[in-house]
Design a protein around this nucleic acid. Structure first.
Lengths: 118, 118
DNA sequence: TGGTTATTTAACTTAGTTGTTAAATAATAT
DNA sequence: ATATTATTTAACAACTAAGTTAAATAACCA
């Protein structure tokens, strides 16, 4: 999980994944859109491979890379556990905004003395 | 997006988020389960805050931290674009397993010439 | 005021990441 | 064999990250 998120934390690597979603391809072709040396790309690919996000074949002198989406699924599942939370947040925002509107109508000027402790 | 994934790449920080999903709480309480100095935790919280994953209030000498799930939603949305991809993978696996079963039924006796490589 | 509790900042160490260029390896083509 | 094309490894520099201890802030308590 850590290595998956770490791999996704780099925009170059996310772009590589996006490219690979269109289909398997060679390192040179992957590298083309980037202003970056070949070895740099090669190492990004190594990071992706270690995270299990790609696999590499051998076809003559090319090493085609292929997207492996399983770790993405795991990451997605992890995030999914927080779904209620972000949906709730919007609900709360709604609620809060309503409260605020009521207050503004009611007492347009008094400021807070109420203390709270958790 | 990068800072969100980077923040999630650390297991301590993921654990902190899990704790905060149960409710807002103080730094000391967040730190309790970890064998780690206070400043270390404090800096993890700073990382989470910079990524927009938590917000911090002030209540007497405590600084309660609160989960902010919006960046998680964004991350989830990003991953969602690959859903077809990982579902496809399972389809392919299914297919492959079926093919395999057929083969096994068909030629359940020719042994010793098949080579496999890991 | 001074003391206590909660939290952050500073200074430092160690380790890992990201990029570079130059050289090495791998397979094909002549 | 040798040259060519594709890709990786080595060696290095600059930067960032994660932890430590000790000291600084901040707000309360007496």
């Amino acid at each position: 999980m850590s290595s998956t998120f770490a791999a996704l934390a780099d925009p170059t690597r996310r772009a590589i994944l996006a490219r690979l979603a269109l289909g398997e391809t060679s390192v040179t072709e992957i590298a083309a859109p980037f202003e970056m040396s070949m070895p740099a790309i090669s190492r990004h690919l190594k990071v992706l491979e270690k995270a299990g996000l790609i696999s590499r074949g051998r076809e003559a002198q090319w090493r085609p890379c292929k997207l492996k989406a399983e770790p993405l699924k795991q990451a997605s599942d992890w995030l999914e556990e927080y779904r209620n939370f972000w949906e709730q947040s919007f609900d709360r925002l709604d609620e809060y905004l309503k409260t605020l509107q009521k207050k503004e109508k009611r007492d347009a000027g008094k400021n807070g003395s109420g203390r709270k402790k958790r």
